[in-house]
Every structure is written in structure tokens, then in C-alpha cells.
């Protein structure tokens, strides 16, 4: 983000803003009384203006009320035994909600944290590897490859609720397509969402199906801007495709890969809908976001607990976002 921001900000700063004459009195608009180049009566530039605040205000109001203030408010709520029906009945409990995070629960916060990590690692490793393979496979090329690109991307356009419902049926132990196919191929079948061991892999498979097309596009974008000169030189010297990828293409893709890893990490930590919809028996797919949701649904008296969990999730996300900021600056330097 900053690598594209920094130069842009620079542009806006360095933009020569020679004093542009502006018609002074408002009454004199559209009269064209001031010939261009003539000595300006009002030496103010129309850009330099406090109007800027007014123009930014609507957007800032939306973010302020629904995002920026609530972020601090979450922390505040997390210090209370919150009563949402009558806030005056809320009780200040200090860090008790945070202590409760580390206690046994069904499911406990630590379990949910573990599940979030499991999912994130699966998505990052699987998503990066598969999408990179796909990108190398379908980059550039003619109509057939463009069609394949569209095929990979189409799942990403489906609403999560609708497509995870379909995958719920695919994973159905008795009448699902997956077990049927495995049986036909004489491979072992599984309970998928209904077994603690296979439920998270199943959700990861669904999520990869949904996200890989998008990540592939990002990689294709990265491949499009790297130079083919080195690769060509290597091929002339008799370098095989595998070695060319490993020593020439892959290093040049490093900034893009870093970027993909970080956005996938942040996105996976926040993922919610598929866990809501594909929850089989038990809690083996209850992640942090689902835990927050389950404790914030209005009926339960655990809003303070949910807020504490949300604060922790927020802290983790900020951490990764800061890492992203640092690395993309570094990445930008490497790329340019």
C-alpha cells in the first residue's frame, strides 16, 4: 500500500501549484473579467482551502461513527459485565473478561484461537501454492486460457452463504458428491464436517475453492510486469523450465508473494460466513470470529466476553497489518 501511496503523495506535494488566479468576488463569476495571465487580484489558489474538511466530512462521519469510535468502544465494553438491555445495570469488572478468555469453555477462546491459526496456515500455504501454479498455467495466452481464468475466478463471485450451502451438501457423509466420488474411485470416505479431524480441512477446501481465483489474478498481475529478459537469457543458456522458475521467476515474484501471504492471513483471520454455515457437529471449526458472533448474538449476557475476544483479534490483525506495511515498503524497494 505505501509503495503506491508514497509516490502518489509525493506527486500531490510536488505538483507545481503556481499561483492560479481565481476570480476574487463571487459576484464576478463567469464574467471572464480577468484575462488569463493578468495580475491576479486574489493570489489564493483554488486548491488551498479549508473546504477540504467539508468535503472529507461525510466519509469521516461514516468511519467515525461505525468504525473508528467503535474500535475504542470495543475495548471499553470488554472491561464491563455488559448489560445491553439496560446499560446502567452494567458492572465494571476490569480485566475479568480477559481472564475468562484463558479459562475452560465450550468452546474455549484458546481452542478457537487454535482453529483460527489452523485455518489461516492452511489457507496461506494452500492458497499461495495453488494460485501460483494456476497463475503460471493460465497467464497470458489465448482464448482457452482466458476461459480457464474465468472458471477459476467464478467461485469467488458466489455469495459465501450460497456456495457454502452447496459445499455442505457436497461434504454430506451419506449423499454427498465427494464421498460418492471417492467410493467410485475405491478411496476411503470420511465424515467430513462431522468429524473433528476432517472438518477443518473440509472448510479449508471450500475456502480455497472460493479464494484461489482471486489470488491467481494477483499473481497473474505480478507475472505480467516482471521482465522476461532473464528467463530468455537462461533458456538460451539451456536452463530447464523448473530451474528457470526456481531461480529466475520465483525470486522476481517475491514482493507479490509477500503481499498475497499477508492479505490471505488477514482475510483468513477474519473469515466468518463459512464457519457459520458449515458448522457440523462439535466445535472443531469454531474460530475466533464465530466465537465472537456466538457470544454477541443479543440473547447471551456475554457481550463483554465477546468484546474481549474481539479486542484480541483486533490486536492480532493490527500486528499483521503493520508487518504488511513494513514489508510492502521493502517489497516496493526491491521491485523498483
Amino acid at each position: 500500500m505505501p509503495e503506491s501511496l508514497a509516490p502518489a503523495a509525493g506527486v500531490s506535494q510536488n505538483q507545481p501549484s503556481p499561483v492560479r488566479p481565481r476570480t476574487g468576488p463571487r459576484l464576478g463569476r463567469r464574467t471572464g473579467r480577468i484575462p488569463a495571465g493578468a495580475g491576479p487580484r486574489d493570489r489564493r489558489d483554488f486548491r488551498a482551502t479549508a473546504w477540504g474538511y467539508l468535503f472529507v466530512l461525510p466519509a469521516l462521519l461514516v468511519f467515525g461513527v461505525w468504525t473508528i469510535f467503535p474500535t475504542f468502544y470495543t475495548f471499553y465494553i470488554s472491561l464491563w459485565h455488559w448489560n445491553e438491555f439496560d446499560i446502567s445495570l452494567s458492572k465494571y469488572v476490569g480485566l475479568a473478561n480477559y481472564r475468562q478468555l484463558f479459562q475452560q469453555g465450550d468452546p474455549s477462546f484458546l481452542d478457537a484461537f487454535g482453529h483460527s491459526l489452523y485455518f489461516t496456515v492452511g489457507m496461506v500455504l494452500g492458497g499461495t501454492a495453488i494460485a501460483l501454479g494456476f497463475a503460471l498455467l493460465v497467464q497470458r495466452g489465448g482464448r482457452l486460457l482466458a476461459l480457464s481464468r474465468l472458471g477459476f475466478y467464478l467461485p469467488h463471485a458466489t455469495p459465501l452463504i450460497a456456495s457454502s450451502l452447496v459445499w455442505g451438501m457436497i461434504f454430506d457423509p451419506r449423499f454427498g458428491l465427494l464421498n460418492y466420488g471417492l467410493d467410485k474411485l475405491h478411496l476411503p470416505t470420511s465424515q467430513w464436517l462431522y468429524s473433528p479431524g476432517s472438518s477443518m480441512p473440509a472448510v479449508i477446501v471450500y475456502s480455497l475453492w472460493h479464494e484461489v481465483g482471486f489470488i491467481t489474478l494477483v499473481f497473474i498481475g505480478g507475472l505480467a510486469v516482471i521482465s522476461d529478459e532473464y528467463g530468455e537469457a537462461a533458456r538460451v543458456d539451456g536452463c530447464g523450465p523448473w530451474r528457470e522458475f526456481w531461480y529466475i521467476t520465483w525470486p522476481q515474484l517475491r514482493p507479490v508473494t509477500t503481499f498475497v501471504v499477508l492479505i490471505t492471513t488477514i482475510g483468513s483471520l477474519q473469515a466468518f460466513t463459512q464457519f457459520y454455515e458449515l458448522r457440523g457437529a462439535g466445535n472443531s471449526t469454531v474460530t475466533l470470529s464465530l466465537l465472537i458472533f456466538l457470544n454477541a448474538d443479543g440473547q447471551s449476557p456475554t457481550l463483554g466476553y465477546a468484546a474481549a475476544a474481539a479486542t484480541v483479534l483486533f490486536a492480532i490483525t493490527v500486528l499483521f497489518s503493520l508487518v504488511r506495511r513494513r514489508t510492502s515498503v521493502g517489497g516496493g524497494a526491491v521491485a523498483s
Binding site: 469521516l60 461505525w66 470495543t74 483479534l313 497489518s321
Partner: peptide, 20 residues
């Protein structure tokens, strides 16, 4: 400030925004 809004996950906003 506006760019920093990107760092806030929607899930964490559910609790305070529900109260608001």
C-alpha cells in the same frame, strides 16, 4: 486515518456497533 480503517475486522465491530 481513513486508510487505517482497513485494519479493523468487521467481526470486531459487531459488538460495539450492535450497542451503538
Amino acid at each position: 486515518l481513513i486508510l487505517s480503517v482497513l485494519m479493523v475486522p468487521t467481526v470486531t465491530l459487531i459488538v460495539p456497533d450492535f450497542v451503538i
